[in-house]
Design a protein around this nucleic acid. Structure first.
Lengths: 192, 192
DNA sequence: CGTTTTTCTTAACCCACATCAAGTTTTGTA
DNA sequence: TACAAAACTTGATGTGGGTTAAGAAAAACG
């Protein structure tokens, strides 16, 4: 149950057996069926979740259209950071794209852990720092790569996304319509 | 000299007089003339800087074109996070848009501070978390707002940017060409 | 303070993605 | 396995931003 978590945590910071156990004790397993919602816009994000199995996404809803912000596979932490950190209502939705198994930790428990065991501040810092790096890469790509370039980069840099996620969700992630992604794929298939 | 830093730090975490002094002792003042470079792509970002006065930006260079990633005014911390955290060469440039005064801290000193005074892990965490929130907002806007909407949001949400920064730099930040921003401004001026 | 350089605007034309619509393929499930 | 729903593709047409080019306005600077 906690194997993947242990591996994933160990990549951020080495923990003693006791430290890991005290962390794991705060986590509650939760299953999420495909399409089931983890967080709705307007709610406050009171928990973040470690993805033990499956795949989730967060997305924005604007004028009836969904815009995929990010996909999360095994080993990732998912939630609405903005809401989780600020305590303000979320502006995004989080749901499952596959049947998923999560390990969920309440915001309050994590905050208490930070205070009581400062060692875990480092975990919080490293986690946030990694998210910064990912988010800035994504911003940069949206800023100056064409949709076609973004799609090609996705294929090479995040093959799991292309393998496991429906094309219309990928289009949404790339910031284009499904019809446009179809045409880009056609263009690429008709050589070059 | 350290007034603004103290105010800015206090918003993140309360520090004792001694703690603040031990932090301030790691900082070196540095002046940067307008257009002067703080960091070049390819270099490793060995320092981050607190902006005491002035304005800096980071930008990407692709096929001879500049793309502004972010602007930094008084009270902000600037550097290439990706490079600073990973130790890898930077992919972006940082320079001054106005004559500026910085307070610079070496990466190694900050890392040591984290280890020796775990209290400051919290500073690092809160700083990173705030950057995550900003970066995700920017990503979202690029993902689903039109250039015109992005410009309007910039006016209301970050008036300082519109007041102090040249239009062609704003266009670049919005992900469009200066000619397009001109047209958008004209469109908006011709009422509605 | 006048000259040079940079920044900003305008215009004409082009093109990639959006939109609307229809049809095909795949998936889910009773 | 058959049917319905969802996902994907293709086509016709529209549009906002890109490109190129030129000129106007503002800023930098000797």
């Amino acid at each position: 149950m906690f194997d993947r978590l242990q591996t994933s945590l160990a990549q951020l910071l080495p923990l003693s057996r006791e430290e890991f156990i005290s962390f794991a004790a705060l986590l509650t397993p939760r299953r999420l069926a495909k399409h089931e919602t983890f967080l709705r816009a307007g709610e406050i994000c009171t928990h973040i979740a470690f993805v033990n199995k499956g795949c989730l996404r967060y997305y924005y809803l604007k004028e009836g259209n969904e815009y995929n912000g990010q996909f999360f596979f095994e080993g990732a932490w998912v939630g609405d950071y903005q809401s989780f950190l600020s305590g303000q209502p979320s502006v995004q939705y989080v749901d499952a794209l596959e049947d998923s198994e999560l390990l969920v930790i309440p915001r309050t428990d994590l905050q208490r852990l930070y205070t009581e065991q400062p060692r875990f501040e480092r975990f919080g810092r490293l986690l946030a720092e990694n998210i910064v790096i990912g988010s800035q890469r994504r911003t940069a790509s949206l800023l100056f790569d064409s949709p076609e370039e973004r799609y090609l980069k996705l294929i090479t840099e995040r093959p799991k996304v292309v393998e496991r996620i429906a094309l219309h969700h990928i289009a949404s992630y790339l910031g284009i319509k499904p019809e446009s992604l179809s045409r880009i794929r056609k263009r690429l298939a008709d050589n070059r």
